[in-house]
Simulated assay, not measured.
Amino acid sequence: MKKFWLLTLFLSILFSCSENSKSNNNPYIPNYTINERLDTNLPLYNNLKYASNPVMITTAGAKGLIVMKVGEGSYTAFDAACPNQALNSCVAMTIDGINAVCSCDKSTYSLYTGLGDKEYPMKQYKTEISGSVVRVYN
Protein backbone atom coordinates (compact mmCIF):
# COMPACT_ATOMS: atom_id res chain seq x y z
CA MET A 1 0.00 0.00 0.00
CA LYS A 2 2.87 2.37 0.81
CA LYS A 3 4.39 1.78 -2.64
CA PHE A 4 1.06 2.64 -4.26
CA TRP A 5 0.90 6.01 -2.48
CA LEU A 6 4.53 6.78 -3.31
CA LEU A 7 3.92 5.95 -6.96
CA THR A 8 0.77 8.11 -6.98
CA LEU A 9 2.64 11.01 -5.38
CA PHE A 10 5.52 10.68 -7.84
CA LEU A 11 3.21 10.61 -10.87
CA SER A 12 1.17 13.58 -9.67
CA ILE A 13 4.34 15.63 -9.16
CA LEU A 14 5.68 14.56 -12.54
CA PHE A 15 2.53 15.55 -14.42
CA SER A 16 1.97 18.77 -12.49
CA CYS A 17 5.44 19.95 -13.47
CA SER A 18 5.10 19.12 -17.14
CA GLU A 19 3.88 21.66 -19.65
CA ASN A 20 3.00 21.58 -23.28
CA SER A 21 6.25 23.12 -24.51
CA LYS A 22 5.36 22.47 -28.16
CA SER A 23 2.59 25.05 -27.88
CA ASN A 24 4.95 27.96 -27.32
CA ASN A 25 8.10 26.57 -28.92
CA ASN A 26 6.61 26.26 -32.37
CA PRO A 27 9.28 26.67 -35.09
CA TYR A 28 6.75 28.21 -37.48
CA ILE A 29 5.47 31.04 -35.26
CA PRO A 30 7.87 33.74 -33.96
CA ASN A 31 7.69 34.90 -30.35
CA TYR A 32 6.06 38.31 -30.56
CA THR A 33 5.48 40.35 -27.42
CA ILE A 34 1.76 40.33 -26.66
CA ASN A 35 0.09 42.73 -24.21
CA GLU A 36 -3.49 43.40 -25.29
CA ARG A 37 -6.32 44.76 -23.13
CA LEU A 38 -9.80 43.94 -24.39
CA ASP A 39 -12.65 45.81 -22.71
CA THR A 40 -15.75 43.62 -22.97
CA ASN A 41 -17.94 46.72 -22.56
CA LEU A 42 -16.83 47.89 -26.02
CA PRO A 43 -18.95 46.63 -28.95
CA LEU A 44 -15.89 45.12 -30.67
CA TYR A 45 -15.24 42.76 -27.72
CA ASN A 46 -18.79 42.40 -26.36
CA ASN A 47 -18.99 38.72 -27.46
CA LEU A 48 -16.29 37.94 -24.89
CA LYS A 49 -18.93 38.35 -22.17
CA TYR A 50 -20.46 35.05 -23.28
CA ALA A 51 -18.91 31.57 -23.36
CA SER A 52 -18.07 29.97 -26.71
CA ASN A 53 -18.17 33.25 -28.69
CA PRO A 54 -14.62 33.70 -30.02
CA VAL A 55 -13.32 37.07 -31.16
CA MET A 56 -10.55 37.74 -33.69
CA ILE A 57 -8.08 40.54 -32.92
CA THR A 58 -6.12 41.33 -36.08
CA THR A 59 -3.66 43.84 -34.59
CA ALA A 60 -1.45 41.51 -32.52
CA GLY A 61 0.49 38.28 -32.83
CA ALA A 62 1.85 36.67 -35.98
CA LYS A 63 -1.51 36.61 -37.81
CA GLY A 64 -3.82 37.95 -35.12
CA LEU A 65 -5.27 36.55 -31.90
CA ILE A 66 -8.35 34.45 -31.28
CA VAL A 67 -9.76 34.96 -27.77
CA MET A 68 -12.69 33.06 -26.30
CA LYS A 69 -14.45 32.85 -22.95
CA VAL A 70 -14.46 29.20 -21.91
CA GLY A 71 -16.18 29.49 -18.54
CA GLU A 72 -16.97 31.92 -15.76
CA GLY A 73 -13.84 34.07 -15.37
CA SER A 74 -11.82 31.87 -17.73
CA TYR A 75 -10.55 32.72 -21.21
CA THR A 76 -8.26 31.19 -23.81
CA ALA A 77 -6.14 33.13 -26.31
CA PHE A 78 -4.31 31.68 -29.30
CA ASP A 79 -2.30 33.05 -32.21
CA ALA A 80 -4.30 32.93 -35.45
CA ALA A 81 -1.30 31.66 -37.45
CA CYS A 82 -1.56 28.08 -38.71
CA PRO A 83 0.63 26.18 -36.25
CA ASN A 84 1.91 23.55 -38.69
CA GLN A 85 2.61 25.73 -41.72
CA ALA A 86 5.31 28.26 -42.59
CA LEU A 87 4.18 31.71 -41.50
CA ASN A 88 4.23 33.23 -44.99
CA SER A 89 2.36 30.34 -46.65
CA CYS A 90 -1.10 30.85 -45.10
CA VAL A 91 -3.46 33.64 -44.20
CA ALA A 92 -4.85 33.81 -40.66
CA MET A 93 -6.95 30.94 -39.40
CA THR A 94 -10.70 31.40 -39.58
CA ILE A 95 -13.20 30.89 -36.77
CA ASP A 96 -15.74 28.11 -37.25
CA GLY A 97 -17.91 27.99 -34.13
CA ILE A 98 -15.63 26.89 -31.27
CA ASN A 99 -12.86 25.83 -33.65
CA ALA A 100 -10.19 27.53 -35.73
CA VAL A 101 -9.50 26.28 -39.26
CA CYS A 102 -6.16 26.61 -41.05
CA SER A 103 -6.52 28.14 -44.51
CA CYS A 104 -3.72 25.99 -46.01
CA ASP A 105 -4.40 22.43 -44.91
CA LYS A 106 -7.96 22.84 -43.54
CA SER A 107 -6.87 21.37 -40.18
CA THR A 108 -9.27 22.14 -37.33
CA TYR A 109 -8.15 23.16 -33.83
CA SER A 110 -10.24 23.45 -30.67
CA LEU A 111 -10.45 26.96 -29.22
CA TYR A 112 -10.84 25.39 -25.77
CA THR A 113 -7.53 23.51 -25.89
CA GLY A 114 -5.69 24.63 -29.02
CA LEU A 115 -5.30 20.99 -30.02
CA GLY A 116 -5.73 19.62 -33.52
CA ASP A 117 -4.61 16.48 -35.29
CA LYS A 118 -1.20 17.79 -36.39
CA GLU A 119 2.19 17.90 -34.63
CA TYR A 120 1.91 21.37 -33.11
CA PRO A 121 -1.09 22.81 -31.26
CA MET A 122 -2.06 26.47 -31.61
CA LYS A 123 0.32 28.92 -29.96
CA GLN A 124 -1.29 29.92 -26.68
CA TYR A 125 -1.05 33.15 -24.69
CA LYS A 126 -1.87 33.87 -21.06
CA THR A 127 -5.04 35.67 -20.01
CA GLU A 128 -6.20 37.47 -16.88
CA ILE A 129 -9.40 39.30 -16.03
CA SER A 130 -9.73 42.60 -14.19
CA GLY A 131 -13.33 43.83 -14.07
CA SER A 132 -14.54 44.04 -17.66
CA VAL A 133 -11.04 43.92 -19.17
CA VAL A 134 -9.46 40.73 -20.48
CA ARG A 135 -5.68 41.03 -20.70
CA VAL A 136 -3.86 38.79 -23.19
CA TYR A 137 -0.10 38.60 -22.72
CA ASN A 138 3.02 36.46 -22.73
Rank of each mutant, 00 (worst) to 15 (best):
K118F: 01
P83V: 06
F15M: 11
E119Q: 09
Y45F: 13
L11N: 10
K49T: 05
L115F: 04
S21K: 13
G71P: 14
A81L: 07
T40K: 13
S23A: 13
Y28V: 00
P27L: 09
V67G: 07
K3S: 12
L38P: 01
C82V: 02
Y109L: 10
N26L: 03
Y32R: 06
T113A: 04
L44M: 14
T113M: 00
S74V: 13
S110Q: 04
Y120E: 00
D105M: 04
L38T: 02
V134G: 00
E72N: 15
P54Y: 02
I34Y: 00
K63E: 03
F78E: 08
E119F: 12
I66V: 10
M56Q: 06
E72W: 06
G73K: 11
G97R: 09
L65E: 04
E72P: 12
Y137A: 06
M122G: 00
N47I: 04
P30N: 05
P30A: 07
N46E: 10
N35L: 10
R37H: 10
G61E: 01
S132I: 04
F15Q: 05
C104G: 13
N138R: 02
N25T: 07
Y75M: 07
L11V: 14
M93F: 08
L6E: 10
P54F: 08
T58D: 13
R135Q: 15
K123P: 01
K69R: 15
C104M: 12
I13L: 15
L48C: 04
V101N: 12
L6D: 05
F10D: 02
N24I: 07
T113Q: 03
K63S: 07
L87N: 11
L87G: 14
S21V: 12
I13D: 03
L111M: 08
A81G: 10
L87Y: 11
K2H: 15
V136D: 00
K2S: 11
G116Q: 03
T33C: 03
Y32W: 06
V55T: 06
K63V: 05
A60Y: 09
N99L: 14
C102V: 01
S130P: 05
Q124M: 04
S52C: 10
D117R: 11
S23Q: 06
L115H: 06
F78C: 07
V136K: 05
E72L: 13
S74K: 15
Y120S: 00
N99V: 08
C82L: 03
L14S: 11
S89L: 14
C17T: 13
N53H: 13
K123C: 02
A60H: 13
M68T: 12
S74Q: 15
S107P: 00
S132K: 09
W5T: 08
P83M: 04
T8A: 15
V134C: 02
M122H: 01
W5K: 13
N53Q: 14
N25H: 12
L42G: 00
M122T: 01
G61I: 05
V134H: 06
M93K: 11
K22S: 08
G71Y: 08
M122N: 01
L7N: 11
P43Y: 02
D96K: 15
P30M: 10
